[in-house]
Design a protein around this nucleic acid. Structure first.
Lengths: 348, 348
DNA sequence: GAGGTCATTGTGAGCGCTAACAATTCCTGC
DNA sequence: GCAGGAATTGTTAGCGCTCACAATGACCTC
């Protein structure tokens, strides 16, 4: 055995074994240039032998850097937020940072404030807030916080630095696609009013119609769930034959509900009504029929937002804008065009 | 202004303002009993005024406790793992712990080892590993690690302490339900071979059939994705009319693919073939038809596993078994019984 | 009013590391 | 063969907190 099993070995223990000072050990660990090869090797061997690892708390205390970032998320398994979470962690780890997460059942000023306190007590150097609800963004802006915060999923409503997929553009792609296919107008099933991204999608949809000289119908509202989509779908079915031939649904899960309601009402998709979703969840390709939808690059959101946050933490002038927009992409399938995409892996 | 904006205030700063020693401030913060009310109030006021917060690194160094737990997860947005992740964080936070996550694209000995190192460098006191793949459990067992580890999602294969939903029982519920409905036999679309939970579901299915005196057919294999379910569904469709009337699918997403393949083959569900899934993802209720499935209580998994981990960290004798099993629950819908559950919120 | 007890507060020594500087050793070149 | 500089190593002082113990003072008791 190499050392007392009671306490993990310290830098001084390693130094003693290697016959050097603790500072030399520190230099080896910190990859400092001015250490003789022979010495370095001896220290390495001692480290190896004792299974030594630096104590992160002591290091953090001395350097005033914890190399930890916080993430505040809501605890939904919605595809978008969950994907963003993973992308954030991966990007942060690539930069050598640890990520601590707090997931909230609902985002209010109180819960957000508690979450930031919890993270602050954990010593995070900065926080990414996945805050799609407008109220959360407002709360974020008014909270005093001792570290930089970057918001994500806030659509166009960011009063704080942010990285977002351009929802307005995504909605334009979806709506434009339907108009180009010959539909005279496009209905819209929107997400919750409180979500800025939902509002942005409404704006994009409305603007596209207006530019085409079409008076937009009144949008319906859902809550992202398949159930709300199903209910809206029943209502939409009642308008078939009275000018409704195309619907842009604000997410794929609601689109699933719409498809079911239409089918049950004897309405065929896409022959009678074309449907476009949003998100491109893995299941969309297997809906009946496979769903045309808008894909968002969450991985890019993660990387860009982490890069921005690190710039802010380290006091650098951000290398780009502090409100980052990422382009979404339209994925065409059979729900808008009967011969599109037979089931199978995407080509290319 | 209350203090130099350059450095956050320290305990000594607060002490000076309140006219006491730093130790008294520490006592107030630590809710020590022997502090005069008047003093306590004065200190509180000083803390408030300076916006003081304890430095977590210094605290961790002095107490040798970081109050941080690590979680290793794979970066899928699969419903089960993602739900478990949130449940874990919530349970840990309730106990005053911060949670740092590492999400891996694939779980191998190398990636797992790196993840544990990364967390170790972050000073975690223990780790929860969401390790559904058998290889990951094995890797976990052989890695030397300086802190306790509790595995989750490992099915019955836990060589380390663990908390799991009883997959064997879940499969029995599903299979038994189909037999009770009068089906002569039940086919099975299993998950990947490497997943212990998939294997446990196979065992439960097989045992139930054998007890009923039925020779189990050869199970099909999928990879959890809707696409793999679709392909298996096409194969299953070929057996309709030759004894196939019921299928137990190892997760809901594959069941979605199966349903579509059957529908395209002109096979009706549940009249020609009944289908049971597993997981009860939020969408299941809106499949065509709504899916009978097995629900798992991830929140319980989170709470129990965190409690177990904290017992291990604090050197207590665990208050319960170190291999915790949680009961799943069957949810009956129209995919096995044509008049079950009209769409709408679940009753009760 | 001396001695004892208790509640309250202060003091000093680390926790294990890094940063700044001091000391030493090793080369150069002439 | 020795000054001068660079390379290498050691020494010291914190980082901001908690713990153990010492000191103070208030309040009793006889």
């Amino acid at each position: 055995m190499t050392h007392s099993p009671l306490r993990p070995p310290t830098m001084a223990d390693v130094a003693r074994l290697a016959g050097v000072s603790h500072q030399t050990v520190s230099r080896v660990l910190g990859d400092h240039p001015n250490v003789r090869d022979e010495t370095r090797a001896r220290v390495q061997r001692a480290i190896e032998e004792m299974g030594y690892r630096r104590n992160s708390s002591a290091r953090a205390l001395a350097t005033r850097r914890t190399r930890t970032l916080g993430v505040v998320a809501s605890n939904t398994t919605l595809y978008g937020p969950a994907s963003t979470l993973f992308a954030l962690e991966e990007a942060a780890r690539a930069e050598g940072y640890l990520v601590s997460t707090v997931s909230l059942r609902k985002l209010t000023v109180e819960t957000l404030s508690e979450a930031l306190d919890h993270l602050s007590d954990g010593g995070v150097e900065g926080v990414i807030a996945i805050a799609p609800q407008r109220s959360a963004v407002e709360a974020l802006a008014e909270l005093r916080r001792p570290f930089p915060v970057v918001a994500v999923g806030t659509g166009s409503a960011s009063t704080v630095p942010s990285a977002n997929v351009d929802q307005y553009l995504g909605a334009r792609l979806a709506t434009g696609h339907l108009l180009a296919a010959g539909h005279r107008t496009v209905w819209h099933l929107a997400g919750p009013e409180d979500w800025q991204e939902a509002a942005d999608r409404v704006s994009g949809w409305r603007a596209t119609l207006e530019e085409a000289g079409v008076e937009p119908p009144l949008p319906l509202r859902g809550d992202w769930s398949p159930l709300s989509g199903y209910r809206a779908g029943q209502e939409l079915a009642g308008w078939v034959g009275r000018g409704l031939t195309a619907v842009f649904v604000a997410n794929d899960q609601m689109a699933l509900g719409v498809l079911r309601a239409l089918r049950e009402a004897g309405v065929r998709t896409p022959q009678d009504v074309a449907v476009v979703g949003y998100d491109d969840i893995p299941e969309s390709e297997f809906f009946a029929p496979p769903l045309t939808t808008v894909r968002q690059d969450f991985s890019a959101v993660g990387q860009r937002s982490i890069a921005l946050l690190l710039d802010l933490i380290e006091g650098r002038t951000p290398s780009g804008p502090t409100r980052i927009a990422i382009e979404p992409q339209l994925v065409v399938r059979a729900s808008t065009y009967p011969y599109a995409s037979p089931p199978g892996p995407a080509p290319g």
